[in-house]
């Protein structure tokens, strides 16, 4: 790991002022569970790490009127243990439980879950986010994620990038219409839909999210909607691992929203599936929503099975949502 400067100021704006907008020059540390490993592996080599551990203002869960305001540095364990979250948003608690490791839940944060780097094994082994930088003498420059073992890779939006968004929370938060409060230099603040945090990089210069090096998520706001909601994760094991396919469904009086995770470089919203569910969820409409969600998938050489998993996950998430309170 490259040596770096370290600071842990108590004020968010002080922390932001210590960050550089140049990509990769500095890094924000929340729980650090992903960042420390990424630094050890040389995937990121910041000159400075700015820790948010003393920034109390972005900790904890508040009821802001009927809405819920979650500090980005709130740990996943705190989120799991919050009774109001459990009552109103089983789709969130299911996703947190799925993380499967008490050690990660006690340290990892809400913001960190959203902004963790993809788990693509080619990326994690130093071949770049687009898996096209192997550095080997006989490497032809094509993406290993296309040519190699892509069983866990994207089945949607996978032309330029094949990794999948790693966040456990994003599908549930997006289905619930949550916003992220993004704070930048000079107290500049903007509130954007959680869905808009993510992007599919079109070149290796781009990241998988839209934040600049000196922007930080301070809060997540979940608007009260009264939506019934549920999440279903397809997993290989119950312990620590990332899901293969996630579906999160929120059913409000205004309509249903279906969001998939781990199937595209970003969380994947399926408007067609939401329409198919409408306001009335039963076995038939849930199965129809699954079919709609899987429409248009472009699986790679080793991951066609994920198309089937999408159908199952959407159906089960919809039924879980229907059964909610």
């Amino acid at each position: 790991m490259k040596a770096f400067e370290y600071a842990a100021p108590g004020d968010l704006d002080d922390a932001i002022a210590m960050l550089s907008d140049a990509p990769g020059d500095s890094a924000v540390m929340a729980g650090g569970t992903d960042l420390v490993t990424s630094m050890k592996q040389g995937l990121v080599s910041p000159n400075r790490v700015v820790s948010l551990r003393n920034v109390k203002a972005i900790n904890g869960i508040q009821e802001a009127g009927p809405d819920l305001r979650i500090g980005a540095a709130t740990t996943l364990g705190e989120l799991l243990g919050h009774s109001l979250v459990a009552d109103l948003y089983p789709s969130i608690t299911t996703a947190v439980k799925g993380i499967g490791s008490p050690q990660l839940m006690s340290v990892g944060t809400v913001g960190g879950d959203l902004l963790q780097a993809p788990r693509c094994w080619y990326y994690r082994n130093g071949m770049g986010l687009l898996a096209d930088d192997a550095g080997a003498a006989n490497f032809d420059g094509d993406s290993m994620a296309v040519e190699g073992d892509n069983r866990y890779h994207a089945i949607f939006d996978n032309k330029t990038a094949q990794f999948v968004s790693a966040s456990s929370l994003a599908p549930a938060l997006i289905a619930l219409g949550a916003n992220a409060v993004v704070r930048g230099p000079k107290k500049a603040e903007r509130e954007i839909a959680v869905a808009d945090l993510f992007r599919t990089p079109s070149s290796s210069d781009e990241r998988e999210h839209v934040l600049k090096g000196n922007e930080v998520i301070s809060h997540i706001n979940i608007p009260a909607s009264g939506a019934k909601n549920g999440t279903y994760e397809v997993r290989t094991r119950q312990g620590l691992d990332w899901p293969i396919v996630t579906a999160s469904v929120a059913i409000a009086s205004s309509g249903a929203k279906v969001v998939l995770g781990h199937v595209a470089p970003t969380p994947w919203v399926s408007d067609a599936a939401g329409k198919a569910l409408g306001g009335k969820v039963d076995e038939t409409s849930a199965a129809k929503a699954g079919e709609e969600a899987a429409n248009g998938a472009t699986p790679l050489s080793h991951n066609e099975y994920k198309v089937t998993l999408v159908k199952v996950a959407v159906k089960r998430a919809a039924m879980a949502a229907a059964a909610h309170g």
Partner: peptide, 21 residues
Amino acid sequence: LVREVADTAVVEAASDVQGPG
């Protein structure tokens, strides 16, 4: 280290920044 300071608009807080030693 000065390179970063000079090249970017990073505002420092030296009393709070530690390391890399």
